[in-house]
Nucleic acid binder design. Structure first.
Length: 645
RNA sequence: GGCGAUGUAGCUCAGCUGGUUAGAGCAUACGGCUCAUAUCCGUAGUGUCCGGGGUUCAAGUCCCUGCAUCGCCA
């Protein structure tokens, strides 16, 4: 069996897991599941990076011992993955004795062969921070934390002779176009390598830092950062003697975010070369998730906790969103609205509904078994062929980590299948016994399409794919090579429709005049019992139901202009969160330019009306106080579209 | 400051080696169907392809330059 080895970075434990960590790890998990689908023997590794002065300081701030601190945060990372349906095979901690021993062995080896030497390092040192600062970190030439000028001091340290391997590295990258992907990062590395490489400082004196791995050849120093962290990719395989190392290292691939490109694309291959090892096969570099235009980081308050998202949307929905929304390699924007939109439109409407309507028809028109197909018509064949073509694209894109493209290809087929149902009209065929064969062919083609779609979804949405496979009676079929061919579905097999795959998320999908929930709640009441409303209305009171019918939402005004020929009306463009036009009679009280950016409360489900020729979709609430008119507002910023109740 | 990336419809983005009227999804409007989770299908718009120069018969796509955003600088 062919082997496959994929790692995420090991995450630094100075902060809790956030969306960026989750993304790297979801990507790796999805690829590993895909490789398993291809029948490979897969090893999937992640872990935590636990040494260094930042962690010592974080522990001090938390008033716990460093050991307690790293144990706690590392455990949080470990616990973060199962809820996202992420299942690593190994979880390496750099404080594991086994890892530390491997690091020391490598240091000694490289030292013995002369690629580590003792020298002097000069830099700007802040006594308050007890560390060197780069010029970028300085504010007006001073340490931003202590507001003191750092001193120019020299320190003796050990250096890795990285420059020695520069030419080799340039040559290797040039000869292996796949070594660093996407290509933009490969170019970035090559252009960086045009400048002479300096040697890498790999130690810190124990007078400054003791929380690290002691250098085996000089116990006055601990090793610093990369010679510790990067080696996890080997120590997790029991380098040097373990059988896992021999098996998996030759097929090693890494997933990283772009901020650690240089260590992985330059330090790590040269380190490996110095150790006499082959470099990894491929390095896959992804971008950042931006939260409303600012980079996500723990220092800002806009951290999204993966666990919260899973609780709100479900693991599969979050995984799908992360893989579908970001073009691998580029940055992407994250918002709950976007996640909600993907969930409702791609998952609930397109996939979930296709699945539901297809299985219901099989249940109603074919007694819940896979029907015997007849001779396929041109339309039937077209769908079947498009599905098989999709499988090819899907594989090609996933091989290249182009998740968004792979998923676009799958959803193209989902869309085709929905069109296919409309044009074949199985419910009409079902009315005419003479067309039973044709009906059978249509339903068979649909089930076959769904079976293949299900196969492609296993790596992306494991829980959903399992449910779908179960309903299709294909639970055990998880080999893309064996099952990823057409016509494999056996007529007569039982089909068992299950529960809804993706419940619609209601909170921010109030675009439609009425959510179905209200309707079903109200209907029994109006049928079975006399409505209490008339009596209440007589006293000027309305029922709660009546209030619920009113859909109030917070909307942000993004544009405002006067309507010609009207001195009272303004045409407003608002985000609620979808964009809509509302005409408001407030021109005598507000200037258009002072409205932009304001959040107001609107009635979102008002019947559209034309005012002075402009269609208005909703109404802006305002208080009337004699001649004054004051717009409604919320007392603090909230997400556009938030329900007011 | 140096190196690099990004800037395309209201939103999120796709556009490989330059070549017919610049695309998709979402959102919006209108119409149709009823198998389905009020879902699905069809139709309809809108773009100084960041600005300014240039190369070319032809540039979103190449070159120069400016602006904005982001990353890296061991």
């Amino acid at each position: 069996m062919t082997a496959y080895y994929l790692t995420t970075p090991i995450f630094y434990v100075n902060a809790q897991p956030h969306l960026g960590h989750a993304y790297s790890t979801v990507v790796a998990d999805a690829v590993c599941r895909y490789q398993r689908l291809l029948g490979k023997d897969v090893r999937f590794q992640t872990g935590t990076d636990e040494h260094g002065d930042k962690i010592v300081h974080a522990a001090e701030d938390a008033e716990v011992s460093v050991k307690e601190y790293v144990d706690k945060i590392s455990a949080m990372f470990k616990a973060a993955w199962p809820p996202l349906a992420i299942v690593p095979d190994t979880f390496v901690r750099t404080t594991d004795p086994a890892h530390m021993a491997v690091v020391q062995g490598i240091l000694q080896q490289v030292y013995d062969q002369g690629d580590i030497y003792f020298s002097e390092y000069t830099g700007l040192y802040c006594k308050g921070c007890e560390q060197f600062l780069t010029e970028k970190e300085l504010k007006d030439g001073k340490c931003p934390d202590h507001l003191t000028e750092p001193a120019q001091i020299s320190e003796q340290n050990y250096f890795f002779r990285m420059s020695k391997y520069q030419e080799w590295l340039i040559d290797h990258i040039s000869k292996h176009p796949e070594f660093i992907t996407p290509e933009r990062y490969r170019n970035e590395v090559l252009s960086f390598l045009k400048e002479p490489l300096e040697d890498l400082c790999i130690s810190r004196p124990t007078t400054r830092l003791t929380w690290g791995i002691p250098l085996p050849f000089d116990n006055r120093f601990v090793t610093y950062v990369w010679f510790d962290a990067l080696i996890n990719y080997l120590s997790g395989l029991d380098y040097p003697a373990g059988p896992d190392f021999a098996r998996y290292w030759p097929v090693a691939e890494h997933v990283i975010a772009k901020d650690i490109l240089k260590p992985h694309a330059i330090y790590w291959p040269t380190m490996l070369k110095a150790m006499g090892l082959e470099p990894y096969q491929r390095l896959h570099v992804h971008g950042y998730w931006n939260m409303n235009e600012t980079k996500m980081s723990k220092s800002l308050g806009n951290v999204v906790r993966p666990g919260e998202l899973v609780a709100e949307f479900g693991a599969d929905s979050v995984r799908y969103f992360l893989l579908r929304e970001m073009s691998f390699g580029l940055d992407a924007g994250f918002s709950k609205e976007a996640l909600m939109a993907r969930h409702n439109s791609d998952l609930t409407n397109d996939l979930g509904n296709l699945f539901s309507r297809s299985l219901t028809m099989v249940k109603n028109f074919a007694a819940s078994v896979v029907p015997q197909p007849g001779v396929p018509s041109a339309q039937d064949q077209e769908l079947a062929e498009a599905t098989l073509a999709m499988l090819g694209q899907y594989r090609e894109h996933l091989d290249n980590f182009a998740f968004h493209r792979a998923l676009a290809a799958v959803w193209e087929v989902i869309s085709r299948a929905n069109k296919y149902i409309v044009s074949t009209q199985p419910w009409e065929l079902a009315k005419d016994p003479q067309q039973a064969t044709q009906l059978g062919t249509v339903l068979y083609t649909l089930l076959e399409t769904l079976r293949l779609i299900t196969l492609t979804l296993h790596p992306i949405m494991p829980e959903t794919a399992a449910k779908m496979a179960e309903a299709l009676g294909a639970a055990g079929e998880t080999s893309l090579n064996d099952c990823g061919v057409g016509g494999r579905l056996v007529p007569g097999r039982a089909i068992t429709p299950g529960a809804q795959l993706f419940p619609r998320l209601q909170q921010e999908t109030k675009d439609k005049p009425q959510p179905p929930k209200n309707k079903t709640m109200k209907e029994p009441a109006s049928e079975n019992t006399p409505s209490p409303e008339p009596a209440a209305e007589a006293e000027g009171l309305i029922s709660f139901d009546a209030f619920q019918n009113l859909e109030l939402r917070v909307a942000e005004i993004v544009a405002a202009e006067k309507i010609a020929k009207s001195d009272r009306l303004l045409k407003l463009t608002v985000k609620a969160p979808e964009e809509r036009t509302i005409v408001a009679g407030i021109a005598q009280h507000y200037q258009p330019e002072e409205l932009v950016g304001r959040q107001v409360i609107i009635v979102a489900n008002l019947k559209p009306a034309k005012l002075m020729g402009v269609a208005s979709h909703g109404m802006v609430l305002a208080a009337k106080d004699g001649d004054r008119l004051v717009l409604s507002a919320v007392s603090g910023p909230v997400a556009n579209g938030s329900r007011v109740a």
